[in-house]
């Protein structure tokens, strides 16, 4: 560890490149905490957005017009308004109204800023996932579904064994794009003072006045995070790939 720190100190002394997180354990701690929070934010938002997408796509197949219209309205709304304003709406508008009395008698927010960020991002990405899953389901050929009925599968069995496995494969490339975008969108939590990667980095560069260095570290960190996600998605896609198609 010390040799790494010595390297970064040398970098600063000799070349004037001040990467404080390389030699200052306090800054490094801050940075790693921020990184960890960004990972948490991403993982939770990805999870809930997939849930929202799955439920949305399922509801979109509902025989009830009103349910389909509501899901359609939800998708249309979240796709055509800025995510930052959505986030503000949740945190500053709903968050201010939704408060509960605490033991001390003071009004406490029901949901933390981190919580609102997760909710907001999940709905935003979930709206897109709804559309992605729905078109994946629609792209499963009708004749394949018919063959399944002809073999005695029920509607639910057909959905579970035939439609979903195919729809997931069809959706995967678009889904990957959307999830990558979601990870990038987590930076918006900065605006709610959630101490994620961008926020702690901004603190570090205002304390240490090493904007240039921290900026580059930050950009590389995000590119790295995205690369990890892309790699995972790629592995998944590969695991699901069916031999004999398009080889």
């Amino acid at each position: 560890m010390t040799s790494v720190e010595a390297f970064f100190e040398m970098l600063y002394d000799v070349h004037g490149i001040n990467v404080t997180i390389g030699y200052d354990s306090w800054d490094r701690g801050q940075f790693l905490d921020g990184l960890w929070l960004t990972v948490q934010l991403s993982v939770l938002s990805i999870f809930f957005s997939l849930l929202v997408g799955a439920i949305g796509a399922w509801a979109q197949g509902s025989p009830l017009r009103i349910i389909r219209a509501l899901v359609g309205g939800f998708v249309t709304f979240f796709r055509n308004t800025p995510p930052l304003v959505q986030l503000y709406f949740f945190f500053f508008a709903l968050g201010t109204v939704l408060r509960i009395e605490s033991d001390t008698g003071l009004a406490q927010p029901l949901v933390s800023n981190f919580g609102w960020a997760v909710i907001s991002f999940s709905l935003f990405a979930g709206a897109m996932n709804t559309e992605i899953f729905r078109s994946g389901i629609e792209a499963v050929p009708n004749s394949t579904i018919e063959a399944s009925y002809a073999m005695g599968f029920t509607r639910l069995q057909t959905y579970i064994y035939i439609v979903l496995p195919l729809a997931i494969r069809i959706s995967l490339p678009s889904l990957g794009t959307n999830l990558v975008n979601l990870v990038k969108t987590t930076t918006l939590a900065y605006a709610l003072a959630v101490p994620e990667l961008l926020y702690v980095s901004a603190q570090i560069w205002s304390d240490q006045l090493n904007v240039r260095e921290m900026m580059n570290v930050l950009l590389l960190s995000y590119v790295g995070l995205v690369a990890i996600l892309v790699w995972i998605l790629h592995r998944w896609e590969k695991a699901l790939r069916i031999p004999g198609f398009g080889g």
Binding site: V180, K184, T187, L188, A202, M215, L219, Y222, V223
Partner: peptide, 9 residues
């Protein structure tokens, strides 16, 4: 692959 907000900063 970089966040828009980071590029803005």
């Amino acid at each position: 692959n970089s966040p828009w907000l980071v590029l803005l900063f």
